[in-house]
Design a protein around this nucleic acid. Structure first.
Length: 153
DNA sequence: GCCAACGTTGGC
DNA sequence: GCCAACGTTGGC
């Protein structure tokens, strides 16, 4: 069992959008970063849990808990030349980019803000979201980080 | 293989 | 809108 933090811009797709989706499930498309692709390909497994994080917004922070519900599979948007994430260099026989499905487990009772996480940096010294320059849209968390953050709720 | 230019992310 | 950080691209 692994733990993850998944960033989403709420103006594009928010925790409430996920709550309103059929079966509270969506596919996580648009990853165009090799490190994140490799996480999805090599490390993320069905049953893994993730924090749903709102980024690039007024109050960045953790808003919910999701479950990974399948292994990574080809992200179809890479072959759609009308799509913003179209990748003309990806070979359909060997797709470069992957996505997976996530299902909402529950919304948090309240948002655990980035600001609040920073106040607990001593207890979370390796939390990647708090590191300078961290821009990965998917990052792993340790079990300790996962459980500690949940006690803040 | 180096590295300058450029694009993107994301907090503020 | 600004800008620091970082990944990618492409000329050499």
């Amino acid at each position: 069992m692994q733990y993850w933090l998944l960033k989403s811009e709420p103006e594009t797709f928010s925790i409430d959008d996920l709550a309103a989706a059929p079966n509270k499930t969506t596919y996580w498309d648009g990853v165009r970063n090799y490190q994140v692709r490799n996480f999805m390909r090599d490390a993320m497994k069905p049953g893994d849990l993730g924090f749903f994080y709102h980024s690039s917004c007024a109050i960045p922070g953790i808003t919910g808990i999701v479950k990974i519900t399948c292994d990574a599979y080809s992200d179809h948007t890479q072959f759609d030349h009308k799509h913003a994430h179209y990748d003309p260099d990806s070979d359909p026989q060997s797709p470069r980019w992957l996505m997976m499905d996530v299902k909402l487990q529950r919304k948090l009772k309240r948002i655990i803000t980035l600001d609040e996480l920073r106040q607990h940096q001593k207890q979370l010294p390796e939390l990647l979201i708090l590191k300078r320059g961290n821009r990965l849209s998917v990052t792993p968390l340790t079990e300790h980080e996962w459980k500690y953050i949940l006690t803040l709720e």
